[in-house]
Amino acid sequence: MRPHRSCLHAIARALVRPAALACTALTLSGAAAAQSSSPAAYPDRPITLVVPFGAGGITDLVARATGKALSEQLGQPIVVENRPGAGGNIAADYVKRAKADGYTLLFATVGVLAVNPHTDVKVNFNSAKDFTYVSLVGSTPHVLVVGPNVAVKTLPDLIKLAKSKPDSLSVGTAGVGSSPYQGMKILEDASKVQFLHVPFKSGSESVTNVASGQVDLTFEASPQVMPFVTSGKLRALAVANPQRLTTAPDVPSTAELGYPNIVSGSVAGVVGPAGIDAKIVNKLNAAIVSAVADAKFKAVLVAQGTEPAASTPEEFRKMIGTEDRRWSALLKADVKN
């Protein structure tokens, strides 16, 4: 016996209604998700801040301090993720390919964005086109230190020794393009000497290898090297800066030693993938500006030998463009020589 047609209609309505309700629920939840991911709602979940070098180096330390300060400003956790390798290129390429929603950012250095493209290491990004610039965060001058096996006490003595032994004195860095690598190149250019480059995954690793006598010298931030200087494992020759540092007051500056062109340090800021909405960029920039103005955050950075300095996105972009042209000329001249 067949069911009556009216019964069939009732069954059909009963079957369709839950599906329709489910569809409606999915549509509403999708709309809610889209709304929560809108620029106006940003940020509504944790943000990942990618560091291009290993843990323990000055870039990592400043990035973690910045992440903590930004978390307080934005009201969301900032997850710091180290992706070392290839002088920072691995991290830059990773962030370049991330979704441009403001939830994956790079704690970028001048070395990664402006130096690496002009080295022998292949880069898979274009600093002018592949990133959204947010703000500078700070600048950390370097201290030039030598290990226990290097019998020099002054910067002029080091230069004299390097000239007598070309390509022999080894310099530890956090990789090609890192700020210590920049310091080495600046020293080579200013004094017309050649060193042997020894790359490591982080600045802290290079410092410990200099202190143990495996490598001859390095450039690093004062908090990284001064404990070793105090213990006698390293000898500080100069601060690569126009003035002395409060964190290393007894170390002469390169300017007062007669080498004003030997100025080196780590300059870092925050960028994201190209195409991040301007409202999100403005929120991030405002958060960094507020953090840098905070006395507590300033004290943390100064204790690490870093001078806090925020900027507009355009100022950061222009600075990278200027440094890019500078390092293009410097490293081309290096290749010719």
Results as ranks from 00 to 15, higher is better:
R2Q: 13
S6G: 08
L8H: 11
A10K: 14
I11H: 08
A14T: 14
R17W: 12
A19I: 15
L21E: 15
A22N: 11
C23I: 15
T24C: 15
A25L: 15
L26T: 10
A32K: 04
Q35R: 12
A41C: 13
D44F: 05
I47W: 03
V50G: 05
G57W: 03
T59V: 15
D60G: 04
A69R: 03
A69C: 01
L70I: 07
E81G: 10
E81R: 15
N82F: 02
N82S: 12
N82V: 07
N82I: 07
R83E: 09
P84T: 07
A86V: 05
G87A: 05
K96T: 04
F107D: 01
F107I: 04
F107K: 07
F107H: 04
V115A: 12
N116V: 06
N116S: 11
T119N: 04
T119Y: 06
D120A: 11
V121S: 12
V121A: 12
N126E: 14
K129E: 15
V134F: 06
S135V: 00
L136E: 11
G138F: 01
G138I: 01
G138R: 00
S139M: 10
P141A: 01
L144P: 03
L144K: 01
V146R: 02
P148L: 06
V152E: 02
L155S: 03
D157F: 03
D157N: 13
L161Q: 10
L161R: 13
D167A: 09
L169M: 06
S170R: 00
S170E: 03
V171C: 09
A174R: 00
S178H: 00
P180E: 02
Y181A: 06
G183P: 06
K185N: 11
I186C: 01
D189Y: 09
K192S: 14
L196K: 13
L196F: 14
S206F: 02
T208F: 09
L217H: 09
L217F: 14
L217K: 04
T218S: 03
F219G: 03
S222N: 07
P223S: 05
Q224C: 09
Q224N: 12
V225L: 07
G232A: 08
K233S: 15
K233Y: 08
L234F: 02
V239R: 01
N241S: 13
R244N: 10
P252F: 02
G258C: 08
S266R: 04
V267M: 09
G269K: 02
V270L: 06
A278H: 14
V281F: 05
K283H: 08
I288H: 01
A291T: 08
V292H: 04
A295R: 12
K296W: 10
K298Y: 02
A299P: 03
L301A: 03
G305C: 04
T306F: 08
A309M: 12
S311A: 06
E314Q: 15
E315M: 12
F316H: 09
F316V: 09
R317K: 15
E323N: 10
D324K: 06
R325E: 12
R326G: 08
L331P: 04
A333L: 13
N337P: 12
